[in-house]
Each structure stands twice: as C-alpha cells, then as structure tokens.
Design a protein around this nucleic acid. Structure first.
Length: 685
DNA sequence: TAGGGTTTT
C-alpha cells in the first residue's frame, strides 16, 4: 500500500540538524507500534470531523503517537491531558526525544508547581487535566489550543468529566477546534454517543496473553484466600513475580507479615525444605519512597520470588515489569458521597469488570501470565458493574460547582455531564456555597466566591484562608491549609505504635499542650519541619511522612503567593503570642462552622447539622472532652469518627456564623435544644 | 481507639 501520509515533521526535517542514529532508531520503533498504521485515518478524519474517539488498549502507543501525528499534520497548539502528573512528565520526555527536540521548547509539559513549556514555541504540551481546567479560568474557550486530546478518558476522573462537559460546550463556539478523546476499550459507545456519534478509531493493544482462572466457589474470607493463593503459586508454579491487590495499608502490612511467617515456618520444617524464599513487599502511596523503590529491584539471585502486595496504585499509577501472576480478590476501597448526610467516606466494595481487566493486564507486560480471580466466573459476569462508577457521581460537588461558576457556566442544571450527578448532590453543594457566602441568594458567584475559586483548596479551606487576616493569623492559616491538603503526615508503624504516639505527644507539648487542638498541632509540625531544615532524618526520628511534608511546603508557598496576589496580608500574632492557637481555632471555625459537634451525655458527640452520633478519632490529641468542637472530616470505619478536631467556644458559633446557628432553622431535637441552651447562656451574660 | 488513588495559573 502506498503511503499518502504527510512527511514526518515537515518543518524540522530540513531545519533540525540532529537527525541522529538515536532518532532513526526511535523512529523505527515508533513505526512498529499498533497505532502507527492509523496515522492517516486519524489525520483525515479530523479534517472532516471536530471530534474523534480513539480506543486503544495498553501498549498501543496512543499516548505518545497520536499527539505527534497531529503536530505533523500541522496543528500548532496541541494539548494532551493526563490524569496523573507523573505520566504527563514521563510522556513529554519520551515524545521530545522521539521528535528529536528539546524538552520545554517544541514539546513540553505543565503540571502544578512545574511548567516546562514555552508560551510561543511549544506546539505539543502534556498537561494534567486539573491544570487545563485551571487554564480555562482565564480563557473559558481554551483559545490557546487548536487541538485538545483527553487521554485515559475511561478513568472518568472528576477533572476529566468536567473538562469533557466544558469542551462539549466550547465546540460549537469554536468550529476550528479539534478534540480527540482517547480511552481503553470499554464503553467506547458511550463516548461516541456523548459527542453526537463522533467517528471511532479502534487500535489493538500489544500485550502478552493472560490466562484467567476463577474460583469454583465463592470465598468466605478474601484475605485468607489471597494468602492461600500466593502460597500455592509459590509452591507449584514456575518462577515469576506475583502481584496481589488488597484495599489498604493495614491489610497489606498484615498480609505481608503473615506470608513471611508462613514461608519461614514451612522452610524451617523438614517437609518443605524445597520451598524457595519469598520476598513480600508492600506497596501503597503513603509508603516512603525508598520502600516503594524496593518493588522495582530484582530479588536475590538464589531463586527468591517477589510478591508485591499493593493497593490500587499498582492498577494505573505504578507499573512494575516482570509480573507473571496477578491475584485479584476483587475489592477496592473507594470514595462514596452520601448527599443526605453530606458525608464523603471510604468504603470497601467490589471492583468493576474494567478494573478486573486492568488488573489482569498487569500479568502480561513482559511475557504471558496468569490472573487468579478469587471469585467465581458467575459473579464476574453477573455481579460486577461494567465500569467503575465515575468519580463525579461519588463526590461532594462544592468544588465542581465553584469551578463551573468561575468558568461562567450559568445553568448548572442543564450543563451536559456525561453522567449527570443526582440533583440532591447539586443542592447540597449549592447549599454549602451559599452558607459560605460564595454564592448569593440568586445562586450567582459573589466576589468572595470568585476569590475562593482562585485558591486550589476545598471551599471551606478557601473561605478560612481568604478571611484569616481578620483573625490576624493568615500565616498560620496557610500552613494549616497546606497540611490539610496533603496526605496524613503522621506515620504509625505496626511494631512501633507506642513510640510513634509518644513522638506525636512531644510535638504537641511544644505547641503548648493538647488543648491547642489537632489543627494547631499540624501548624506546629509544619513549623518544626522547617526549623529542622526539612530534614528527612528528623522526619524519620519523629515518625513523620517526609514526602507529605515536602508537598505541604510546596503548597504553602503557592498559597502564600496566591494570597499576596489577592491582597490578603500574611500576618501572625507571633509564635509566642498566648492567643495564637485561639485565633487559629476561630479562623478554622469561620470556614468549618458546618462541621461542628457538641458533647452529649454518655460518651459521644453529636454533629449539629444532622444529629449524627460520632466519636473522636483515636488519633486526636484532644483529651479534655470540650463541650463544642470543630472537625475537619468525618470518617466512617469501624465507627463514625470525626478526625482532626479542636475545641471551639460556644459563643463563637453565634458570632461567626449566626446565619447557620439560628435555632429556628432546626427541627425539634438535640441540636435545637443545644442551640437554645447556647442562646440562653448568651442572653444571661 | 486508626488513613484507597488522583489532582489544582
């Protein structure tokens, strides 16, 4: 067949001197990718259609090649979104190399905290979906781009879904704009239908075959079944590493311990002397990077087999080569949002077929493999959902609503989401933004709301921060907001729990005792980390997550810059001021008055807004059982917990949020009675 | 009495 396609890189062919051997070798391997023969179809289809849906499995080369095709076809400003930072960076590096250009010039990337692109020269930019959404704030029609690719659309992240809806509304306004939606195999029809029967290009993947084995009977205890499966593979199957998916760090650590113990015991007994050593390695995002790194290192050359016991990080974010066996119990811990109780929580639930397929695929990256599903084929066929429930249906929409308002979307009810969230969820989001004074009575964005959208924070945190200068503690508030925006910084290893708790109490006493509260402790930890020169060793000694703290420092710097731009002065009452934490607690309440609970006789607290009974999370440093507390989040695990808690004085409630604590707004019940007592108390003073 | 994974000019 004759090649009618345009020449590769028409302009650079003559101008770039560096058509090195390396470039030629890369070009040759590019030509071998399954997506390469589809180059002309992609280019020609986009001449006649505004939108193209491209479906390609792992190994098709779609992420690196399709954006290059478009640049070669003459598009001058191409953006390709990725759900994860790490992917945006790595793919941009690879593509710059393939094109024989300098990273940050013709090809670049933009992620939070890092912009390696040139405003004029960059023709192809990889960008996180959240970042592109932010760019749209100042340019709602995304006029900076003539072609946008949404990659990994099947993951249906919150930001991808919002971008898809936004782009769908932009397309009619910008007939010259081109959009390519790239996705894994499942649900391609949903994407083509959503974009008014957009043309579809199907690209095969390149993977080794993976044999799937099911259980003949449902298992009673998936942890035990997982352990047995790993042991059986290790005893009976040829060499090759194992990947086991579990739901959380605690499960993972305990299963790793049990596997180590079982292999050791079997090897010590005479009957199983032939059993090879087994190296059990945990993998989850909160794990310190050196420990994460271990999963990539080859095992000792004495026949040791690796088993990596991982959360969902290993499903998409982290790719480990050399896996031959996957053990999939079929569960994941995922976020759910209950609009009735207004609570987001984590719950263990069954995975989807798409997720099961993705997990199985992890066994076939370097050679043919096997996936052991710890459920029956009937439950796979009949009980698992086709695809994972989109994140937008499982989230609190306050941030989404604020973003859309900022993007000048007037009519949220008719905004075309691929999967519209239930109206009740929208009502809850509107209600929250209204109470925060981000929206006015007509649902329009207020000046405060517009400023809140500028901050990369949850709305209550934005509100807290933007008005923190009123409490003369904006310096403390930026530190707190940064600490609340990163992972939990306290590390509590299973075998050193008492030591870890003692280290935390020492940090607390430096802050002036437990009465200061959990919020104050976070600020204290942040400041101590800076005082100790952001030392990794200091973190280790004090049972703190070094990476999370480093992240918090980045966020704090960005918040301080944004506050400066928004003309909020950065002030502090001073580290020795006796009212320092008191001011901070008032400031927190200013943003989080919707998350207040009061002590009720017995042993529990009651949340004001819905009279839910809750307990202080065991991680709290608050020991003096205050009558009223503000909390950062509600966690549903073995009990209803409130986590990150500080005492508030009851009179603050009426001072700071009289519109929310008006007793007449509450039905007769415990909350109303508590507020009535508060009113009488106030009147008597 | 204990924390899935992403991400934000």
């Amino acid at each position: 067949m004759r090649d009618h396609s345009p020449p590769l890189c028409p302009e650079w062919e003559s101008t770039s001197p560096g058509r090195s051997a390396r470039y030629q070798a890369l070009l040759e391997s590019r030509r071998q990718l399954p997506v390469f023969p589809h180059r002309d179809v992609v280019i020609h289809t986009l001449r006649r259609h505004q939108v193209l849906v491209l479906v390609g499995e792992t190994g098709s080369g779609k992420t690196t090649q399709v954006p290059q095709f478009l640049v070669e076809a003459g598009y001058r400003r191409v953006a390709c979104t990725q759900p994860r930072r790490i992917a945006a960076v790595n793919v941009a590096k690879r593509v710059a190399e393939e094109m024989g250009v300098q990273l940050g010039a013709e090809v670049g990337y933009t992620i939070r905290f890092e912009d390696v692109s040139h405003p004029k020269r960059t023709r192809l930019k990889y960008v996180t979906d959240g970042m592109l959404l932010r760019e749209a704030y100042g340019d709602p029609s995304l006029t900076r781009y003539d072609c946008i690719l949404l990659d990994e659309a099947h993951e249906r992240t919150l930001n991808t879904d919002v971008l898809m809806g936004l782009l769908k509304s932009v397309l009619p306004r910008r007939p010259e704009l081109r959009l390519v939606v790239m996705s894994a195999t499942l649900e391609s029809g949903k994407f083509t239908d959503y974009f008014d029967r957009a043309p579809l290009v199907n690209v095969s993947g390149r993977m080794y075959p993976v044999r799937i084995e099911y259980m003949p009977q449902p298992v009673r205890d998936y942890l035990l079944a997982a352990e047995e499966a790993v042991m059986r593979i290790h005893r009976d199957e040829p060499p090759g590493d194992i990947l086991l998916f579990l739901t959380g760090a605690e499960e993972i650590d305990s299963v790793c311990d049990r596997l180590r113990w079982r292999v050791r015991t079997e090897r010590d007994s005479r009957s199983a002397a032939a059993l090879a050593p087994l190296l059990a390695l945990p993998l989850y995002s909160a794990l310190p990077p050196p420990k994460q790194q271990l999963v990539f290192e080859p095992p000792p050359p004495d026949g040791t087999r690796k088993v990596i016991v991982a959360t969902n990080v290993a499903e998409t974010s982290i790719t480990i080569d050399g896996i031959v066996y996957v053990v999939d119990p079929g569960f994941v811990k995922s976020k759910i949002f209950n609009p009735r109780s207004r609570v987001e929580s984590l719950l263990v639930s069954a995975i989807s077929k798409a997720s099961a397929q993705q997990r199985a695929g992890r066994a076939g990256r370097t050679r043919p493999g096997t996936c052991y599903r710890l459920y029956t084929e009937a439950s796979f066929q009949q009980e698992l959902a086709e695809a994972t429930h989109p994140e937008i249906l499982r989230s609190n929409l306050a941030t989404v609503v604020l973003t859309l308002k900022k993007l000048q979307v007037q009519d949220l009810v008719h905004f075309d989401f691929m999967d519209p969230p239930p109206p009740e969820t929208f009502m809850r989001a509107l209600e929250m933004l209204y109470y925060l004074h981000a929206l006015d009575d007509d649902g329009n964005l207020t000046q405060l709301g517009s400023r809140m959208a500028d901050l990369p924070l949850d709305p209550p945190l934005s509100k807290m921060l933007l008005e923190s200068d009123r409490f003369r503690c904006s310096d403390e508030a930026t530190k707190l907001a940064a600490m609340l925006s990163t992972q939990i910084v306290f590390v509590r290893p299973r075998n050193k729990q008492a030591e870890a708790d003692a280290a935390k109490l020492r940090l607390m006493s430096e802050a002036g005792g437990s009465g200061a509260g959990d919020h104050a402790l976070l600020v204290q930890v942040f400041e101590a980390y800076l005082r100790h020169g952001q030392s990794t060793r200091w973190c280790y000694e004090h049972f703190l997550n070094d990476r999370a703290l480093r992240h918090a420092v980045h966020i704090q710097q960005q918040l301080a810059r944004t506050l400066h731009r928004l003309q909020v002065p950065l002030i502090s009452p001073g580290v020795r001021a006796p009212d320092r934490w008191l001011r901070l607690r008032q400031c927190v309440l200013h943003g989080y008055f919707m998350q207040v609970a009061f002590w009720r006789r017995g042993k529990s607290y009651t949340i004001v807004r819905d009279e839910q009974t809750v307990f202080l999370h065991p991680s709290t440093v608050v020991q003096h059982r205050p009558a009223w507390v503000v909390f950062h989040e509600f966690v549903l695990t073995t009990r209803n917990y409130i986590r990150i808690v500080s005492e508030v004085r009851p009179e603050w409630l009426l001072q700071l949020a009289p519109h929310y604590f008006d007793e007449r707004e509450y039905a007769d019940g415990a909350s109303r009675q508590a507020l009535q007592r508060l009113g009488r108390y106030r009147a008597s003073k």
